[in-house]
Write a protein that binds this DNA or RNA. Structure first.
Lengths: 340, 340
DNA sequence: TCAGACTCTGACATCGATGTCAAGCACGAA
DNA sequence: TTCGTGCTTGACATCGATGTCAGAGTCTGA
């Protein structure tokens, strides 16, 4: 018994009594092969269980794979897995494009908080000839992505625009969403509104900008002691709540800028007697179920991923125009917590 | 201006004034090259920005990639993205193995509810020479996976064991977890306990088995009108709740077999006056935050993925023993809802 | 000075597929 | 009969890397 070996095109050709090239012609539907040989080749291929060596094919044809590379910041955060889910939904969407396209795959990797690895990972993916790249930028400079454009690899940045270069990008309306969320609290008469969330280069900055804009428009002076873009997880909201409560003039409402902050804030409401009004950025499973139900600015990672994938598919389908920037709406879902 | 082209090893060799083979030797640290040539080759490589063509290398060396294929049932379910996250955590774990291993990637695809595509997707991944495969079986027969073992590709089944073949598998203790969960309700005096969850070949069957075992052990006759493994999403719990409430002898407690059922049940508690005791299979973000906090059987997808990846890494590191079956504990996290 | 061992080097074949090209053949028209 | 046309076919080169191997150069010790 020899070890099981993958049959090659030559094996198929031998068995069918034709040349490798003819076998290739049959299997690639090139036509111009006599029917009896077609039959013999197809029979031989099924009998041997032939599957072409993708690497050899790609090497010869200088083709790219049917794989989309996705580089996220941290796979530990459900938000990014949501983005990946969106990409998967889009590239598998049967309505989207020509029936019978080959199975597309997602090649994913995360920078795991080490933004210096971002270029390395991107380079490794390019070496693997991904047909397109979807990047959540974590470094402060994405100019290295320019080299990809030269190689003709479509690139789309997700959640944050690329810095230092102009490529397609899909971002949420962080600024506007935060502003509308805070306005909702102001409309309820609140003037002391805290901001709690994770630190993050772009999105948090945008959300703080929206928060400030809403306050300013209402003639409310921003009190920096109420602004805490410093949490790491839900548990870290506790100490911040303590600090807010110990102020002479504690906030009567809170804007939570991400899911971790929202969950943490809900925990504080349960364990402490503090019951501020609340609006959260990003919806979450439990928001319509907890007491009170949570009013949110809807920020859908799946939609981010889906739209990003669509930009990619457009480019693959031939779009060669200038970089486009898509802004995903962040509508308010009014529930109860902003009334509290 | 010609189009930007990827430099080849031959280009590097030309520029350094050596043969391609010598350049190859330098770049692969084979040694036995005169220092001045080493320097010239390295210089030429950086100047040209040379990166080796992975396909050519893999073709020649008959090597496999540094990619792990992950086939999940449905990327629309956060549970499976959790599994992927676990895999990512494990393969990126710096403690786990030899420093400086090349960047590992995850190649993912989902069967999208069409279980007939499972073998196709697996085949496509094998053609792409993934170094290992992690499969969530959805078909009723995984005997086709046997062919992979012959090719020496490590395979691990996740969440459900493979049918018709014997390969490594990582499953949760569905049976025992459900049994312990239901026992908790019985200990509170409940004798009319409903079961609500999604339909699913293996895991739901196991959880129902645990549910039945607990009832039987307590001398309670199982009433099939209380068993509803039929929901599709959280919203579909509503009609089931109606049906349960309309019984002559409605249940006083509910065991929800998955997150969707749990969220749905919480929604019912809010909108209807029905307040049954509750134990849920699978923890979720909001469980410790809602009123009442939800007692759960902890079923961690991340841990499933992580352990599965570890089995894979063991095999890649040389383990050649018989297939192993790992059962992940499903400990009870006692909160309040089982007391209601 | 010379044999033998060791270092260094590049020509060439190879992995498995496909592009190129020219030859072989059948057919119809002139 | 002869030529042109178009269909079939396979030999061969090619993609970019690496394994093989033999030959050239260097160094040792006798």
């Amino acid at each position: 018994m020899s070890a099981a070996k993958t049959p090659t095109l030559a094996d198929v050709a031998d068995r069918a009594g034709v040349s490798p090239k003819t076998a290739s012609r049959v299997l690639n539907h090139e036509g111009n092969v006599r029917p009896d040989k077609v039959a013999r080749v197809l029979a031989a291929a099924t009998e041997l269980g032939f599957t072409p060596n993708e690497f050899a094919r790609l090497l010869r044809t200088r083709g790219s794979t049917t794989t989309i590379g996705v580089v996220t910041a941290d796979i530990g955060d459900p938000f990014w897995t949501g983005v990946i889910r969106g990409v998967e939904l889009a590239i598998g969407d049967p309505d989207r494009d020509d029936v019978g396209h080959p199975q597309r795959f997602i090649l994913s990797a995360s920078t795991r908080e080490r933004s210096d690895r971002e270029p390395e990972i991107v380079a490794a993916m390019v070496d693997r000839r991904v047909m397109a790249l979807l990047v959540v930028p974590t470094t402060t400079d994405q100019s290295y992505l320019g080299a990809l454009a030269e190689r003709g690899v479509p690139v789309v940045c997700v959640d944050r625009p690329a810095a230092g270069t102009d490529v397609d990008a899909v971002v949420a309306d962080d600024d506007g969403g935060a502003r509308r969320g805070v306005e909702l609290l102001i409309a309820q008469g609140h003037r002391r509104i805290a901001f709690v969330g994770r630190p993050s280069v772009y999105t948090t900055a945008e959300r703080i900008a929206g928060y400030r804009a809403a306050l300013r428009a209402a003639g409310i002076v921003v009190d920096d002691r109420l602004v805490h873009p410093t949490i790491t997880d839900a548990a870290s909201v506790g100490p911040i709540a303590e600090r807010l409560l110990s102020l002479d003039d504690p906030p009567t409402a809170v804007f939570t800028a991400d899911v971790a902050a929202s969950i943490g804030m809900l925990a504080c409401r349960r364990t402490r007697s503090w019951r501020p009004a609340m609006v959260a950025f990003s919806d979450f499973d439990a928001a319509p179920v907890v007491e009170p139900t949570v009013t949110v600015v809807h920020n859908d990672p799946v939609e981010l991923g889906r739209r990003a994938a669509e930009l990619v598919l457009d480019r693959l389908a031939g779009y060669t125009g200038p970089p486009r920037r898509v802004r995903i709406d962040t509508p308010i879902i009014e529930r109860e917590s902003h009334l509290a």
